[in-house]
Simulated scan of single mutants.
Amino acid sequence: MRTAIIVAGGKGERLGRDGGKQLAHIGGEPVLSHTLRVFDACDLIDAIVVVTDPGRVAEYGSVAVAPVGSAKVVAVVPGGLSRSDSVRSGLSAAPGSTGVIVVHDGARPLVTPATIAGAIEMLERDDECAGVVVGHPSYDTLKQVDDLDVVVATPDRATIWSAQTPQVFRAQAVRDAYEQAAHTGWTGTDDASFVEHAGGMVRVFAGPRDNVKITVPEDLRVAEALLQAREGRAGMDSLRVGTGYDVHAFAEGRALVLGGVTIPYERGLAGHSDADVLVHALMDAIVGALREGDIGRLFPDTDPRYSGASSVGLLREVAALMRERGFRLVDADTVLVLEKPRIAPYREAMRAGIARALDVDVERVGVKATTTEGLGFAGRKEGVAAHAVALLERCRA
């Protein structure tokens, strides 16, 4: 079992905020809640112990822990006077079957599941390793100074890393290290230093530099901006674009149906269904965005069920498939390529009918037409082509 100990016992005095940094809000919820959500989402974490300010256990539990609704949280316990005391409290509350301990600052809400999992995997791959520290190489030149602020040394930054959390340990190694320190009175500045002092080998795992810790007020603004940037990237990841194209030849004795509207004309379009070339192109765009192939796979022209079928009716089926796959239409635009008939008188009716079939506002549907200036099959009035583009967005749960 792998247990995460989220240390959230600090009073946040440097933040200058009543309630401390753990309950300060970014992205509409407490910092600690953001942190818990990440650990809950990490598949390699089995249990979570939250360590809080000893005088505010119930408050932290109700305000920041309970709203997350994580089944992994096995305990919310009081911390101690120092960070090391708080970690000891968390170790005592960890399930007895825990083999790996992951210690993390509750005030580092921008950690990612991938970073947590990467550090755990590094530890578990190396039998000689007692611990792994997430951090990054120092990019700044560091100065060692004395009590008078005089520089006494400039360490080689090539050998210096900035340590962050999470810090991952074999459970017995970190328990033994803290017990040894308690007996000797030794104290360190982070959990890895306890394990190092006890003789354990600790490695470093390169994590992202935006794994910032909330300490002073400006850190909240930085974290908020980084969170918004991440959500923006996630929003882009949820978008899908599809393009569609279809062409049908004119045929005698058939009605001309374009965009779901029957248009008075001397000829219609040849096809297995009603041959609505505009709706076919739009369906192909949506199906393409869903990565479902094309409409020929969904509605093969060898299937008698689709003989003479209404393309708008098939569009409703595509819309249902889109919703089943967890997407919604953001926007669609289409263009008909033909010399005649004129489309302008019927354009708004086409938009309205398509919008109804897709169950979206008509402003999300565009329809237009163009000619080829007499060039090609469309210019020779042999048939009609249509192009479409559709933008889909994954629906939020």
Score class of each variant (00 low, 15 high):
residue 150 V to S: 07
residue 150 V to W: 03
residue 150 V to N: 11
residue 151 V to N: 05
residue 151 V to G: 03
residue 151 V to M: 06
residue 152 V to P: 06
residue 152 V to D: 06
residue 152 V to M: 03
residue 153 A to K: 06
residue 153 A to T: 01
residue 158 A to P: 01
residue 158 A to D: 13
residue 158 A to Y: 04
residue 161 W to G: 02
residue 161 W to T: 05
residue 161 W to E: 02
residue 162 S to V: 13
residue 162 S to F: 07
residue 162 S to A: 11
residue 164 Q to I: 05
residue 165 T to K: 02
residue 166 P to I: 04
residue 166 P to R: 08
residue 167 Q to V: 07
residue 168 V to I: 10
residue 168 V to M: 02
residue 171 A to G: 00
residue 172 Q to N: 14
residue 172 Q to Y: 08
residue 173 A to D: 08
residue 173 A to P: 01
residue 174 V to R: 02
residue 174 V to W: 00
residue 175 R to N: 03
residue 175 R to M: 06
residue 175 R to I: 08
residue 176 D to K: 10
residue 176 D to R: 11
residue 178 Y to E: 04
residue 179 E to W: 05
residue 179 E to Y: 04
residue 181 A to W: 10
residue 181 A to N: 03
residue 181 A to I: 03
residue 182 A to N: 05
residue 182 A to W: 02
residue 184 T to R: 10
residue 185 G to C: 11
residue 186 W to R: 10
residue 187 T to L: 07
residue 187 T to C: 06
residue 188 G to Q: 00
residue 188 G to N: 06
residue 189 T to H: 13
residue 189 T to A: 13
residue 189 T to P: 00
residue 189 T to I: 10
residue 190 D to M: 13
residue 190 D to L: 02
residue 191 D to G: 01
residue 191 D to F: 03
residue 192 A to W: 00
residue 192 A to C: 07
residue 195 V to H: 01
residue 195 V to N: 00
residue 196 E to L: 11
residue 196 E to S: 04
residue 198 A to T: 09
residue 199 G to A: 09
residue 199 G to W: 06
residue 200 G to C: 05
residue 200 G to M: 05
residue 201 M to I: 09
residue 201 M to H: 10
residue 201 M to R: 11
residue 201 M to C: 10
residue 202 V to K: 00
residue 202 V to M: 02
residue 203 R to Q: 10
residue 204 V to R: 09
residue 204 V to Y: 08
residue 204 V to W: 06
residue 205 F to L: 04
residue 205 F to M: 02
residue 206 A to N: 11
residue 206 A to R: 14
residue 206 A to V: 09
residue 207 G to P: 00
residue 208 P to E: 04
residue 209 R to P: 04
residue 209 R to W: 07
residue 209 R to N: 12
residue 209 R to L: 13
residue 209 R to Y: 15
residue 210 D to N: 14
residue 210 D to K: 03
residue 210 D to H: 15
residue 212 V to N: 10
residue 213 K to M: 13
residue 213 K to C: 15
residue 213 K to E: 15
residue 214 I to E: 01
residue 214 I to C: 06
residue 215 T to I: 12
residue 215 T to N: 15
residue 216 V to S: 11
residue 216 V to R: 12
residue 216 V to W: 05
residue 218 E to I: 13
residue 219 D to Q: 07
residue 219 D to G: 06
residue 220 L to D: 03
residue 221 R to V: 15
residue 222 V to E: 12
residue 222 V to D: 08
residue 223 A to M: 09
residue 224 E to H: 11
residue 225 A to G: 14
residue 225 A to K: 15
residue 226 L to E: 11
residue 227 L to D: 02
residue 229 A to C: 06
residue 231 E to L: 15
residue 231 E to H: 10
residue 232 G to L: 14
residue 232 G to R: 15
residue 233 R to A: 14
residue 234 A to Q: 14
residue 234 A to F: 12
residue 234 A to E: 15
residue 234 A to I: 09
residue 235 G to E: 13
residue 235 G to P: 02
residue 236 M to R: 14
residue 238 S to N: 08
residue 238 S to I: 02
residue 238 S to D: 11
residue 238 S to H: 08
residue 238 S to W: 01
